[in-house]
């Protein structure tokens, strides 16, 4: 449970940092007065969608950290663990996902420049490569199954399929949001909205890349 506890500690630090900006030490019963006096601490500023995504990413981190905890505990709890040979396809897949993330970063630049043509191109590239990654993952599964590494044969296999499936499902969810964004580029959407949509997609993409790298590290570790 070390991994999840480390995550909780990290999140707790962020929460404490945020709380420390909320005037927790002031005496609210003495502070009668107009709102303007407390501008710094009233709600506002960042769009709600961005905060929501941030909170959601914390939830997803918790999910994967728990799986990682289970993984490392199960590995040492019995002597039946046989690490499986990672299919070579995972490496090109990783590069594809990295490029996908990069394309999303490009989209962010394009949307800020107001360059509609490159925005569309960048988004299409980002989505298509994420899709390609998913196909690649399925093929990696096939490689493993052909090699006789079935789900139930060993806990290492079971974790492999479970973790990759879960990551893939999350990416698939991201592709839904991506689809909505790309539809928006076809319409005349306010620039502020377009930027927000692209930013959210990009953030999610980078995050899914990080999660994938963490999974990969876990798989390499044992």
């Amino acid at each position: 449970m070390t991994i999840i506890l480390l995550l909780v500690a990290t999140l707790a630090t962020i929460a404490l940092w945020w709380l420390s900006h909320q005037r927790l030490m002031e005496k609210p019963w003495l502070e009668t007065g107009p709102a303007e006096a407390f501008r710094g601490v009233t709600a506002g500023g960042m769009p709600a969608e961005k905060i929501a995504l941030g909170v959601f990413l914390a939830v997803v981190s918790s999910l994967f950290a728990l799986f990682a905890s289970a993984y490392s505990m199960r590995m040492h709890m019995a002597s039946d663990w046989r690490s499986l040979p990672l299919p070579w396809l995972l490496w090109p897949n990783t590069i594809v996902l990295f490029l996908s993330s990069l394309a999303m970063g490009w989209a962010q630049i394009a949307v800020r420049r107001g360059d509609a043509a490159s925005l569309r191109k960048a988004l299409l590239a980002g989505g298509a490569s994420a899709f390609l990654f998913l196909v690649g993952q399925l093929m990696a599964w096939q490689q493993l199954a052909e090699g006789g590494f079935y789900l139930a044969a060993n806990p290492a296999n079971a974790f492999f399929y479970l973790l990759t499936a879960l990551h893939g499902l999350h990416l698939l969810g991201g592709l839904v949001a991506w689809g909505r964004t790309i539809v928006r580029t076809g319409r005349s959407t306010a620039a502020r909205w377009m930027t927000l949509s692209v930013d959210l997609c990009a953030l999610y993409w980078h995050f899914m890349l990080l999660v994938w790298l963490a999974i990969l590290a876990l798989l390499l570790h044992g």
């Binding site: 909320q22 005037r23 709102a35 407390f38 009233t42 709600a43």
Partner: peptide, 9 residues
Amino acid sequence: GRARGMTMM
């Protein structure tokens, strides 16, 4: 979503 003047405290 807090109204104007509604600080956390």
